[in-house]
Amino acid sequence: MTDEYIIDINHASKVFNNQKKEVTALSDVSLRIRKGEFISLLGPSGCGKTTLLRMIADLIKPSSGSVTVDGQTPREARLARKYGMVFQSPVLYEWRTIIRNVELPLEIIKLGREERRECAMKMLELVGLRDFADHYPSQLSGGMQQRVGIARALALNPQILLMDEPFSALDEFTREKLHEDLLSIWRRTNKTIVFVTHNISESVYLSDRVCVLSPHPGRLSAVVDVDLPRPRTAEMRSSPELASLVERVRGSFEGI
């Protein structure tokens, strides 16, 4: 039963000390994330959703409580490269071509040149950018750049994909397209995806479960199961089932 959960957050809190003033970013959050699950951390700014993601990524240490990633501390999991990170901006190295951006993590683990290229090509194929391997990031649109970021995060074949508002800077059309792409990648790779967003319908459409976080102090106020069938289709976006789930999620915010 225990190995069914890949991420275990146990009474985790985070208090920041800002000029003698204590700010509680996250208060007593407990959450278990299943292997292969698509889970969203949803909330307005200041609700601590990014803080929670950064705790899993070992970018922030909890003030109290614990976070376990695949049976290890976040630090151990990071050193074992068990997660891939996708940021709000694509964070591409603009002096590297697309393929070489995807190769970057493979270079860090000192993989041979040919294997690197082969693996990176596969990843680019997965996100549908094979033909753009030799382009530079500036030659790609925002949505394509973000897909390169996803390909790079998947390059080391990590169990977990941590995504910090990856589509929030994109226009509506591109975002919906990337939703489909992400779901298809998720289906094919069986990753566990932790997806931070402030977009309610996005979180419902993509996820198995939506974690609703409320601000001041940041806390987990509800976890909503999304029982929409898989695979999700574009028609579901306007379905009454989705609309009622969105309403339920909206109703579970506290103190906004």
């Binding site: 990524a57 970018l59 990071r78 050193l79 490269r81 997660y83 891939g84 990170m85 940021f87 709000q88 901006s89 964070v91 190295y93 970057l104 993590p105 860090i108 080391l156």
Partner: peptide, 14 residues
Amino acid sequence: VSREKHELMYSYAA
């Protein structure tokens, strides 16, 4: 060099 670029390297334990 942006914070995120640093964090990316950090996440790869470089």
